[in-house]
Write a protein that binds this DNA or RNA. Structure first.
Lengths: 304, 304
DNA sequence: AAACTGTTTTTTATCGATTAAAAAGACAGT
DNA sequence: ACTGTCTTTTTAATCGATAAAAAACAGTTT
């Protein structure tokens, strides 16, 4: 059976929306809600019906009104876990399994075994593995399952070789953007976010991961290329789990990266290509070193 | 039910192998055959049983002998179509459908509809679409199927932007390879193949596609990177179907490309980086122009 | 003990059917 | 044109079945 995570997330978001309306106020139309909650009208109606049944919303010939904001606030939201789609659950469990228990390169991955271990259907596992293949961490041997390639220093080096090529190319494109490009404004805004985060870095350093991804994607936006975007999905993915996993010096590392970003942005604003290249290089190098440090490398595989 | 294409291919290959043995000669052991035919021992045994049943092979306490080479030669092979695995069949049919009938960007792709149209199970279609996603020609909208992005000039341009970056990088690495690297020898051999093909280009120009792929993969081998290899899969894939599809000036185009390859190789042998870059650029530019010409571009999407 | 062959167990590929969720479409009333 | 109601289609997810193929196990023979 299909999971109803879409409904549950829409229900939670709808509750937030409701709590911002005054008692007796009329709700937006279904189509407007559809737009706001990012779901189909069918799902919107299901959510509204639920609200109505709980006495939070009343209906007078078709039109809907907030009956009781207090009532709405008393409705319990679905837990975060319940709003995660199956595909994301599989991903989460697999990455945990991979990074914690079983980091040996060459390990065979067994679909049935994973399905039993995680308690999901084999089809879900299979679909995940197929999509995950492109990240370069597993390989398929036809008729004989999958092999884990290992989160090794080689992997990190190859990843960063490409990343540097792409980033230099995009940074150059960004620096030569016409001064009336709206991207400059967005860059200025994101620079502000960096400064704000830096001021509260002791408390909010966890927020860096998301900011990092947005910053680099903004740079890529200067000259869009679907293959670069798609490669950046890999980077984001790896970093997402790397951040979850490697907590060592996290605050310190993120602070350094924040400052590097700011230097990088200032170089972009100066439009001095050589300076951009320098600042970019500094940042990518330290990011690479950090990542390599947390790979499962022995001396032999590191040399090469 | 699983297809038995593995068995059928092994059967055909086994027949070839058998025909090279003299009457009465002993067959290699199951394990040796396993190695040669690239299948499991289970499949080897199935093939041998079939040979035995057909009277081509006899068995005397466990050991197997050629009973009659003539008998073996009379056995009919399975047709090529029967040895193609389901995944490749789906790919083939989908590409035909995409390139011929339905090239409009933005077209919705319906799993059930494709399954019915092709006569395959939905799971096979689904699996293909998931794998095919990374080629950048389709995109998934959660809970709402897939959209075809169009084989447009933009696609070709973005593809070639990356291709040029990667190829320059690999060509440079190749040119700086130590002179005792075995890759030089392989390059010399492939140069020979180019000359041979050029001599018979009128008759054999279809063979260029395969040679092209091997040539560029050899260059990438100078400094292996899994992400570049994986990107080259996309190039190969696109070209494979492009060659099948666009027959216009095929002989002429391939002859030009062959000469460009040879110039490119000679530049590599000279180890003059600037010359390598030049020759590489010439070749990639003409390849790009050819590809763009066959995309489904209108003026609007071409401008940008 | 290495190298076989024979036998049994596991795993993979593929199909078909089922269920609920979610989206999309049709249509009447204002 | 818009909203609400009702209907149809499509997707996500699971299950079970079946044959193919691989892998593991168990003896034999040299």
């Amino acid at each position: 059976m299909k999971t109803d995570t879409v409904f549950k997330r829409a229900f939670n978001d709808g509750l937030d929306l409701l709590s911002r309306l005054a008692d007796g106020g009329e709700l937006p139309s279904e189509n407007v809600l559809r737009e706001r909650l990012n779901v189909s009208r069918t799902t919107v109606r299901k959510v509204l019906d639920r609200f109505e049944a709980a006495g939070a919303v009343s209906r007078i010939d078709g039109r809907r009104f907030v009956r009781s904001g207090r009532q709405a606030r008393m409705l319990t939201k679905f837990s975060d876990a319940e709003t995660v789609p199956r595909s994301a659950q599989v991903e989460q469990r697999f990455m945990e399994w991979m990074l914690r228990d079983n980091a040996r390169p060459g390990t065979a991955i067994n679909e049935l075994d994973l399905a039993r271990r995680f308690g999901f259907a084999t089809t879900s596992i299979r679909e995940f593995l197929n999509r995950f293949q492109r990240f370069g961490l597993i390989e398929k041997r036809p008729n004989a399952g999958w092999v884990f390639m290992g989160f090794t220093p080689d992997f990190a080096l190859e990843l960063f070789e490409i990343r540097e090529m792409f980033e230099f190319r995009s940074a150059r494109a960004f620096a030569t953007l016409p001064s009336d490009s709206p991207l400059w404004e967005r860059m200025r805004a994101i620079r502000g976010e960096h400064l704000a985060l830096l001021r509260e870095v002791d408390r909010r350093f966890h927020d860096f991961s998301d900011l990092d991804s947005r910053f680099h994607r903004l740079i890529n936006a200067a000259a869009p290329n679907r293959f670069i975007d798609s490669f950046y999905d890999i980077i984001s993915f790896i970093f997402h789990y790397h951040y979850q996993w490697n907590k060592q010096d996290e605050r310190q590392r993120n602070e350094v990266a924040l400052r590097e970003h700011i230097d990088y942005m200032d170089a972009l604003f100066s439009r001095d290509i050589a300076a951009v290249r320098r600042a970019c290089k500094v940042h990518l190098t330290s990011a690479r070193v950090t990542l390599i440090r947390s790979t499962s490398g022995d001396a032999a595989s590191h040399r090469r």
